[in-house]
């Protein structure tokens, strides 16, 4: 019957991408607190090592694997090194994703800049997660079990206000996150019979470096917010101060990185062994779709 330890991850091996800061870091720590060993990927050495230290502080083994996880060679070598070190990967969390960081050179035609932007968002938000999944899945199939979580976004579940799309979240970002949710369902269908659960979480608006810089940008450049403190301005989102930009958050509080980590730890645990193909919103009720 019921095992009281269905939420524990003792003896499991997890790989978390883009885990140097913010949500990814919290997920790595959450998995470690539940007992899993964690292969930690982040772009830079320092952030990777910091999260690895936090994993160890939570009492678990950590393997730091720094590198650009949108690069196919790095994706393969990261998966391989994690598997060589731990012997297998039980849990994959694709947390990689962002707004446009560095755009590839625009082609010299009228649509060049648009094409470059969409390509960049595709590389970061969809392609990287798909390739990592493809790199890990064959062994999961071989071992007959596995848990995969894609970190999507509320932007992948609904349209956003015109202002939000103009200032903070390019339509291409939402399109890629929506594709990630859809990939979650098709992958769940294909991998279900192989004993592998595939789900997504859709965070709301979380105070990470990227929202910090969005907030700084807002108070620096939007005339009606000029001069406000960035953090104060950010708190106004959950309070419902800017209804023309952000949908109301019914619970009136910001979501935290721990909220997202909690949802991920649940979804990869045996407590959720019969949940697959779902995209779980963690957004205080903001998105009503």
């Amino acid at each position: 019957m019921m095992n009281p330890n269905r939420r524990k991850l003792d003896g499991k091996v997890a790989l978390v991408s883009a885990a140097g800061r913010g949500i990814g870091r919290a997920i790595a720590i959450g998995l470690a607190e539940a007992g899993a060993s964690v292969a930690v990927n982040s772009y830079g050495e320092e952030t990777t090592n910091n999260t690895a230290d936090a994993v160890r502080a939570a009492g678990s083994e950590a393997l730091p694997l720094a590198g650009d996880i949108t690069d196919p060679d790095t994706i393969l070598s990261t998966a391989n090194r994690a598997r060589e070190h731990f012997g297998r990967i039980d849990i994959l969390v694709n947390n990689v994703g962002a707004g446009p960081k560095e755009m590839s050179e625009a082609e010299h035609h009228a649509l060049g800049p648009v094409a470059a932007l969409w390509d960049a968002l595709y590389d970061q938000n969809l392609r990287a997660a798909v390739l990592m999944t493809e790199a890990v899945v064959p062994n999961m199939i071989e071992q007959g079990h596995g848990k995969i979580v894609q970190v999507s976004s509320i932007a992948g579940k609904t349209s956003l206000s015109d202002q939000m799309l103009k200032i903070f979240a390019h339509p291409a970002y939402g399109a890629m996150k929506a594709a990630l949710c859809h990939y979650t369902t098709t992958l769940a269908e294909v991998l279900g019979p192989r004993g592998i659960n595939v789900n997504a979480v859709c965070p709301g608006i979380v105070w990470t470096d990227s929202w910090k810089s969005n907030a700084e940008n807002a108070v620096a450049n939007l005339p009606r917010f000029r001069g406000l403190d960035a953090r104060d301005w950010f708190e106004g989102i959950a309070r419902g101060d800017y209804p023309e930009i952000f949908d109301r958050t019914p619970l009136r509080r910001e979501q935290t990185v721990e909220d997202i980590a909690d949802a991920v730890v649940f979804l990869v645990s045996e407590a959720a062994r019969n949940i697959t193909g779902q995209s779980l919103m963690v957004d205080g009720g903001m998105v009503k779709s």
Partner: peptide, 19 residues
């Protein structure tokens, strides 16, 4: 127990429905 989840309908159905 999730402080920031409200209004969701979570299927526990082994993938019989996905959303």
């Amino acid at each position: 127990t999730a402080p920031n989840i409200t209004g969701v309908a979570l299927p526990v159905a082994g993938g019989a429905i996905m959303r």
